[in-house]
Design a protein around this nucleic acid. Sequence first.
DNA 1: AACGAGGTCAACCGCGACGAT
DNA 2: TATCGTCGCGGTTGACCTCGT
Length: 318
Amino acid sequence: MSSRWSNSCERGKLKKGPWTFDEDIRLLRYIRLHGPGRWSALAKASGLQRCGKSCRLRWVNYLRPDLKRGSITPEEERVILDLHARWGNRWSLIAEKMPGRTDNEIKNYWRSHIRKRLPKSQYSTTEDQYNQGASLMPLSFPSTSTQAIKTKEVKASTPAPPTCQLPQLLSSCSKEDITHHHHHHHKVEEFPEAASSSGIACSSVDCNLNNNSSCSTDHRDRDNLGNQLQVLSDGAGEHYELFRCPSIEYDALSVMLNQFYGAGIPEAVSNSSLGTARTDVTSTIQLTDAYSNSSDDCESDLAASGMLWNAIGPIHDQ
DNA sequence: AACGAGGTCAACCGCGACGAT
DNA sequence: TATCGTCGCGGTTGACCTCGT
């Protein structure tokens, strides 16, 4: 039993390791059509050379649109501390109380940030709580009933089909920023190939060199990423505007997700700080702006962008 | 500039549980 | 009831990154 899933992953020498951009697109497109769940079937039907387990993990921990990006806030850390003190290493349970955070993320945060600050005696007791059969303390949070949080009996619900939760991803770069930085605000042409193939009115792409202080070159500080893609809707259809900070990577997944969910939200603004630079080089497009007259740090890789648009395809025919 | 140590985090692995047949 | 397929959880790994020397 325990090895069944493992075996199915081994079967046919399925791919392992970091996900590529193309795989992400395939997975997203499939989920867009059929919703998440039934991972084994999904893995086969989507054409991905991945096992269902891997697909599920990628979705849950990385591609889900309702994920909150950026560092754990002090408030969130307090919640983690509190809940961990109550429940021990019940990461999925803790994650349920922290919308937008995954169990993996919380677990990693605990191990790399919190645990090392605590004396071993302190964290080991809470970590052992569950194994010792300690009863889970009732929550002080509005949430599932305390009966429902008894240990592993809690059956994690299948993630709901994608809903429009992009407001959670609101970027730190606002329109206001843009208007305040005219000196670096220049328009570039549409993605010709993309627009034609997708059938979407992609009227313009703004490459805004936003030099405000919130823009950081530290790719790991995702809070500070200033990339922004706006999906704008008007009578003529939808078009997309992309704003970015200099010297940071424009994450293609963001574009994809905006289009992915754009159908459901007429006007969506999203943060493009999805993913990290290190996950996979192919999952990010280095937006170095070939269209800029002035600058050296903003170029764009239209081929890659075109590939993206082609890959995800138009909304209306999905 | 080069290198090593330590940190971070996406992804993997093993396992237990559950539902369907 | 037994078996099978699927799913989700928690622990662990390892590639990549940053920082100090």
